[in-house]
Design a binder for these strands. Structure first.
Length: 500
DNA sequence: TCTGGGGTCCTCATACCT
DNA sequence: TCTGAGGTATGAGGACCC
């Protein structure tokens, strides 16, 4: 275990919602909920203003709407989030080559390995500067945890939220963890939490007191050992850059359960194609094809088949998925279908024997099955499908450009109308106008950068790096506590050191 | 109230081989 | 030849994470 708090965990605050607020001036300070807007959607992120109403991630969207009927409801724009994420990861890589992204909005950084920190003071300085840089470059806020291990750095950033920094001094870990709920520890979810509670264990301290054997008895071998070590604040996991993914999958939940077996087959073929598209995008191939079916009653089953060798051939994956589907009873209806590939390899070695066998099977299948079209269905949907509804063509929150009114975003659409608010990240809150969904002057547009490039380049030479200005601010902020706290939420803001 | 999408890891059962 | 032990691959399911 290292002795200095030089592992950093960065967590962007309410990332998707904050990005939308930065991009849409009229939503700043308002309740914003990002997630699936269909009848079976769930909340991906809620802004802090929406959380006041009890809205939180993974909540069914219908419930969120009841709790916060006046919030803005938007579909996620992963393209925008990815761009912002890359900017943030770029800033992290300036601190160290050892950056381990966990998702678009979270990462670990080994500051010591990058030479950017070696003790508590330098780590705190690096954290403060990073937070200032993130704000300057993206206009968003992130929370930073600093500790001697990954687990504690993550707990630190959680405590720091929103918009803060917490450094956990080595030596204080066990006293800090002791009274916390077992649910604080990574890997303890509802099920494990329940197991532990039934064993009379609700706090981290009680895990440590129970002993390793008792834990293994309660939650199994691997989990028990890991949990016991974490309760003692022992976590030697290194920060690992560049993890290879181990599987690729796509899945769709349907607004209405599918009962028609033919339609189920068509959907599985489509998912297989999409899956292979993604697989090829990563330049890899896979050996095991997995079919996932969630039935009308939410029971989920998976079926898998391992091929002779890795493939990225859409026909091979389609056929494997179709074979797997034949073994699944879908009477009663399915609400979700998914196709995935695991056992990924970097090479696309198509086993000649397997290929020949597949071709043979294909020939046989075509003779038997007759008319079923295997070719690509038109992207717009199956033949005879109704025209796309307006909500799909003009998704809530997406950017648009109007020939006359300029840049804006879709506030809502339906019954042949689309409502647009005309504003940009750098403008004042804008006006709202409504158009026909087929208005030729209206077209989809790319998101604009959240920080005005013109304004950012303004002072000094064109190459002036926001980081430099941020560094000055950071130096002011480092100690003692910052003079002012942005945002309204109390608790957790600013910078702090845990001291039991 | 009614539960997304994309992943990782672990456990258990079974089959097969030595 | 039969039986059992142990290793490895495979398949299914569940818990967890963001």
């Amino acid at each position: 275990m290292r002795t200095a708090p030089t592992i950093m965990h960065l967590d962007m605050d309410a990332f998707f919602a904050a990005a939308e607020q930065a991009s849409k001036p009229s939503l700043r300070g308002k309740a914003v909920v990002v997630g699936g807007l269909g009848p079976r959607g769930v909340v991906a992120t809620a802004s802090y203003e929406a959380r006041v109403f009890g809205v939180h991630s993974a909540m069914p969207m219908a419930q969120a709407r009841r709790l916060a009927p006046n919030a803005a409801y938007l579909v996620p724009r992963f393209g925008l989030y990815r761009e912002i994420s890359e900017q943030v990861m770029g800033l992290l890589r300036e601190l160290s080559p050892l950056v381990e992204p966990l998702s678009l909005d979270e990462a670990f950084v080994d500051l010591e390995a990058g030479g950017s920190a070696w003790d508590a003071a330098s780590a705190r300085l690096a954290g403060a500067k990073l937070r200032a840089d993130i704000r300057a470059v993206t206009g968003l806020t992130g929370s930073v945890g600093l500790a001697a291990s990954k687990m504690l750095a993550k707990i630190g950033s959680e405590q720091a939220k929103p918009d803060g920094l917490v450094l956990i001094e080595p030596g204080t870990e066990r006293a800090l963890l002791g009274p916390m709920s077992v649910r604080t520890l990574p890997g303890v979810g509802p099920a494990t939490g329940d197991h532990l509670r039934r064993g009379g264990i609700t706090t981290v301290e009680e895990i440590a007191e129970a002993g390793e054997d008792e834990l293994v008895r309660l939650v199994g071998k691997a989990h028990g050992h890991a949990l016991y070590a974490m309760a003692l604040a022992q976590d030697e996991r290194p920060v690992v850059a560049e993890r290879d993914s181990k599987s690729v999958s796509v899945e769709d939940t349907y607004d209405v359960d599918i009962h028609d077996r033919v339609r189920v087959r068509v959907e599985v073929q489509r998912l297989a194609d999409r899956c292979v598209g993604r697989l090829r995008g990563t330049g890899r191939s896979g050996r095991t094809v997995v079919l996932k079916v969630r039935r009308y009653d939410f029971s989920t089953l998976t079926r898998s088949e391992t091929l002779r060798g890795p493939t990225d051939d859409p026909a091979v994956v389609r056929e494997a998925a179709a074979r797997l589907l034949e073994a699944v009873d879908t009477t009663g209806g399915v609400r979700l279908l998914g196709v995935g590939v695991t056992g990924l390899a970097d090479y696309t070695q198509e086993d000649l024997f397997a290929q020949a066998a597949a071709a043979e099977e294909r020939a046989g299948a075509e003779k038997d099955a007759g008319s079923e079209p295997v070719g690509d269905a038109p992207a717009a949907g199956p033949a005879g499908a109704p025209a796309e509804p307006a909500e799909r063509r003009w998704p809530a929150g997406h950017d648009v450009r109007h020939a006359e009114w300029g840049h804006g975003w879709v506030q809502g659409s339906g019954v042949g109308r689309v409502t647009v608010r005309f504003e940009t990240p750098y403008s004042a809150p804008g006006r709202v106008r409504t158009f026909r969904t087929d208005d030729p002057q209206l077209e989809p547009a790319d998101p604009l950068p959240l920080v005005d490039p013109a304004a950012a380049a303004e002072p000094g030479p064109a190459t002036a790096r926001p980081a430099d200005r941020a560094a000055d601010q950071a130096a002011d902020q480092v100690s003692p506590l910052p003079a002012s706290r942005p945002k309204s939420r109390s608790g957790g803001g600013g910078e702090a050191t845990s001291s039991p």
